[in-house]
Design a protein around this nucleic acid. Structure first.
Length: 219
DNA sequence: TGAAGGATTTGT
DNA sequence: CAAATCCTTCAC
């Protein structure tokens, strides 16, 4: 590791896939404010390893940040059994059930006690799972939305408070070379706008998505 | 112990 | 635009 500090301080990880994986996947790179991590997660890969060993992979194309002091954050009022993981160190999952039928996946960010997380809102799937032979919807939109994403990756409450690292049910990988090569200036076309579906905090521009991705949930 | 409501999705 | 559906939170 030539410059560990850069992993902690700077933006998108410049490292190659497979390099410094442990540092990227665990706390350092994620131990920044959610509003910094959220745009940097765009282009990174989310990997889901099923109980049978099969892996499903998708490129993150849409995220939202939720921070301490943010009225839309589940940890805004106080620490509870549900949101407790957000008060801990970065690099853990926070999964919750919404409307009694969908799950949402978050990545815990920042330092302990600064309860915050990034909601993963949409993925562009690398491979279409064979069991999702949906004819009613185009394959590239199977994970376009936080609830749909969890449905196709088989993510439920049992996957909350899990560390994001290889061998776990879920982990993250840096932006692949193919992604970096797509944007020669090193700057992917990100759109920053307001978050979706909130009753409070709807004015904060804490949602980011990849402008040229067909898998974004809403425009 | 009960009631209200939700970081969604889908179909009418 | 409303239903589906159940966990979490807060009030009593």
């Amino acid at each position: 590791m030539e410059n560990p500090q850069s992993l902690y301080l700077s933006g998108p990880s410049p490292i190659q896939p497979g390099e410094l994986a442990q540092s990227f996947l665990t706390s350092h790179w994620l131990s920044r404010p959610a509003t910094q991590v959220a745009p940097d997660l765009i282009g990174c890969t989310l990997v889901r390893q099923l109980p049978n060993g099969d892996c499903l992979r998708g490129q993150i194309v849409e995220t939202e940040a939720y921070e301490a002091g943010d009225p839309a954050c589940h940890a805004y009022r106080r620490k509870t059994a549900r949101n407790a993981v957000m008060f801990g160190p970065a690099g853990f999952t926070y999964v919750y059930l919404i409307y009694g039928m969908y799950h949402c996946l978050n990545v815990v960010t920042d330092r302990p006690e600064f309860a915050s997380a990034v909601l993963i809102r949409a993925l562009q799937l690398e491979t279409i799972p064979p069991f999702t032979t949906s004819r009613r919807e185009s394959p590239h939109r199977l994970a376009a939305g936080p609830g749909k994403l969890c449905r196709v990756l088989q993510i439920d409450l049992s996957l909350t408070a899990q560390v994001l690292q290889p061998g776990s049910p879920l982990w993250l990988e840096p932006r692949p070379k193919s992604f970096r090569d797509r944007y020669p200036q090193g700057q992917p076309p990100l759109v920053q706008t307001t978050r979706i579906g909130l009753s409070q905090g709807g004015d904060l521009p804490w949602r980011w998505y990849l402008a040229d991705s067909p898998a974004v949930s809403k425009r």
